[in-house]
């Protein structure tokens, strides 16, 4: 119980400071919209084309937007040595980590929920035909992105060129998760439910989330403290 309260305290702290300054949120949302706009120049957005690539487009935009949020997650604590204060506080490393993951998760899910209808309007996609399945895929894949992204945010926080290192290390690591999300989202946006072979991708997402959440919780003390 205490652990859960510690996690939620960290989440609340992060969300509060983010919602007051909105520095990562605004940048990330604007970036996602710019990417969605840029895609329109890359190809002719006719319905057949969109049926094939809509999932890929969306998740690329989400992954790019996510990197901006994840970059700030631990970098925010560098000013005034807040990170040292957090590490020396009674909160265990795992609670600190999960709290931050949860805060990033809420922010990124928020951005995705805002982007989806805009994407639907811009590219003439009726995205809400399978709302429950789509919600499940967003929930699972965004968790994967946030868990891997947050541990790398902690890993790269003290490095030179931090903003460059994070995406360079995170994206290859996220490929299984992003690929599964893309494969599932494309048929869902076209109105087909998840069935048959597609369940394999859902299993991959669940497996990815479980394995990386446990690995990250085990390794976070090594990353933060030494």
């Amino acid at each position: 119980m205490l652990f859960l309260r510690q996690v939620l305290t960290i989440t609340a702290k992060d969300l509060r400071s983010e919602l007051r300054t909105k520095e990562a949120l605004n940048a990330s949302l604007a970036f996602a919209l710019v990417i969605l706009l840029l895609f329109s120049f890359a190809f002719d957005a006719n319905p057949e084309m969109m049926r094939e690539i809509s999932g890929g487009l969306l998740w690329l935009a989400f992954a790019f937007a996510g990197a901006l949020i994840l970059n700030r997650s631990f970098a925010r604590e560098l000013v005034n040595d807040c990170l040292d204060a957090l590490i020396s506080s009674p909160v265990p490393g795992a609670a600190l980590f999960l709290g931050k993951v949860l805060a990033n998760y809420v922010l990124l899910l928020g951005i995705e929920v805002v982007c989806l209808p805009i994407f639907g309007v811009f590219y003439n996609v009726r995205w809400a035909q399978q709302p429950l399945w789509l919600a499940l895929v967003l929930i699972l894949a965004t968790w994967g992105v946030c868990v891997v992204g947050t541990i790398f945010s902690a890993l790269t926080v003290n490095l030179r060129l931090r903003e460059l290192m994070l995406p360079m290390l995170v994206y290859p690591m996220l490929i299984p998760c992003l690929m599964a999300a893309m494969m599932l989202t494309t048929p869902l946006l076209a109105g087909q439910p998840i069935e048959g072979d597609l369940f394999a991708w859902l299993r991959l997402l669940v497996g990815f989330d479980i394995i990386f959440t446990s690995l990250a919780v085990v390794l976070i003390d090594t990353v933060l403290i030494g």
Binding site: I151, L155, N158, L169, P172, M173, I175, P176, L204, G207, F208, I211, F212, L215, L219, T222, V223, G226
Partner: peptide
């Protein structure tokens, strides 16, 4: 020592992606 510590973590994380990549 920091380099050794963080690259050990990176090595563990990288290897855990390999099975996903191969079993799919």
């Amino acid at each position: 020592t920091e380099r050794a510590r963080l690259s050990a973590v990176m090595s563990i994380l990288s290897f855990s992606v390999v099975p996903f990549v191969f079993f799919s």
